[in-house]
């Protein structure tokens, strides 16, 4: 991981086309501005986690362990 310090108003470039700017720094929160081409997907980490969880949770049939699961939940 590259660790870099920036102050409010300063920027970092990722590759040729992505710029991350520190817009504001508060005591517990940083406001970032991100300039990137449309095709670059920018996601909060929690949204990416949910994306992965959804892909794992999506089903086309009921689980084999369904009876045990249902009994265990009741």
């Amino acid at each position: 991981m590259l660790v870099i310090r920036r102050r409010s108003g300063e920027s970092v470039f990722l590759g040729e086309d992505i710029e991350v700017e520190i817009l504001d720094i508060e005591s517990s929160q940083v406001k970032l501005g991100i300039r990137a081409p449309r095709e670059v997907v920018i996601l909060r980490k929690e949204v990416r986690w949910t994306e992965l969880a959804n892909r794992g949770a999506a089903r086309s049939d009921l689980p084999e362990r369904l009876d045990g699961l249902v009994r265990g939940l009741r």
């Binding site: 909060r44 929690e46 949204v47 986690w49 949910t50 969880a53 959804n54 362990r65 045990g68 699961l69 009994r71 265990g72 939940l73 009741r74």
Partner: peptide, 22 residues
Amino acid sequence: VQAIRDDSRYSVAHPLALQGGL
């Protein structure tokens, strides 16, 4: 909508407590 929190109070993979195990 799937409303995704911006805090770490709850888990994306909260283990389910099952009576009698699975």
